[in-house]
């Protein structure tokens, strides 16, 4: 079950905690993976760890030309891209009263517009081959909102809407588009928090703990699989019951 042998996948933000876990999981399932991100050293290290069937395709997603180049680079190195995981994302938190235009724009550019551009570039080949998977890593806050994150929440909600429209457009070509929405996940970002802060964080989670990157990666693997071919336009929430929607 969930065998991706012979399939190729492009994962953006692959140097981050969740992105690396996604790349490892897809690779383990047999896929050849292209690792994208801005931290070239971290990507090279991950590629070396994975060994065969892993290539590095660095890109700065805030640059439109670089996004187009990334799609071409990935197709050149992988032969074709069957699975696209739009995972790259950044935050520029602040209350709306204090939020600068550039904080709004940079978050929308990387989290949403880059995902749109990559999807547009790579869906073409998927349509020709009559098989494809486009998976967006969104966030619980795209559905629930969160103070201090109007830009981030908008980008993540935008990704959910874009995914639904895209799913409707290409469903007849055997291409699915879905989102995975993590709740609180243990990454380098949460490791630095004090225990008291972590306790506060988990108080609102029925599962009583943070999630792991591997638990996000497993959801991505399912949506990438042939078995999930009839699931499209959906958002799979992986949040320990923090929000049941």
């Amino acid at each position: 079950m969930f065998d991706l042998t012979g399939k190729t996948a492009l994962v953006t933000g692959a140097s981050g905690g969740i992105g690396a876990a996604i790349a490892r999981t897809l690779h383990q399932a047999g896929a050849t993976v292209a690792l994208s991100g801005t931290k070239v050293e971290a990507l090279e290290a991950l590629a070396a760890e994975l060994g065969d069937r892993a290539v590095v395709v660095p890109a700065n997603l805030s640059d439109p030309a670089a996004v187009e180049a990334l799609a071409k680079d990935a197709e050149a190195k992988l032969g074709q891209v069957d699975i696209l995981v739009n995972n790259a994302g950044l935050t520029r938190d602040g209350l709306i009263l204090r939020m600068k235009d550039e904080d709004w724009a940079s978050v929308i550019d990387v989290n949403l517009t880059a995902a749109f551009r990559l999807s547009r570039a790579l869906v073409k080949g998927m349509m020709k081959r009559r098989w494809g998977r486009i998976i967006g890593i969104t966030s619980i806050v795209g559905v629930t909102g969160n103070p201090g994150q109007v830009n981030y929440a908008a980008s993540k909600a935008g990704m959910i809407g874009m995914t639904k429209a895209l799913a409707a457009e290409v469903a007849s070509r055997n291409i699915t588009a879905n989102c995975v929405a993590p709740g609180f996940i243990a990454t380098a970002m949460t490791d630095v928090l004090a225990d008291a802060q972590k306790e506060k964080l988990t108080a609102g989670v029925p599962a009583g703990r943070l999630g792991t990157p591997d638990e996000i990666a497993s959801a991505v693997l399912y949506l990438a699989s042939t078995e999930a071919g009839y699931v499209t336009g959906q958002t799979l929430h992986v949040n320990g019951g923090m929000a049941m929607i």
Partner: peptide
């Protein structure tokens, strides 16, 4: 053809 087919044809 459907609308997607016509786009594919043009491409």
């Amino acid at each position: 053809a459907d609308s997607l087919d016509t786009v594919e044809l043009v491409m």
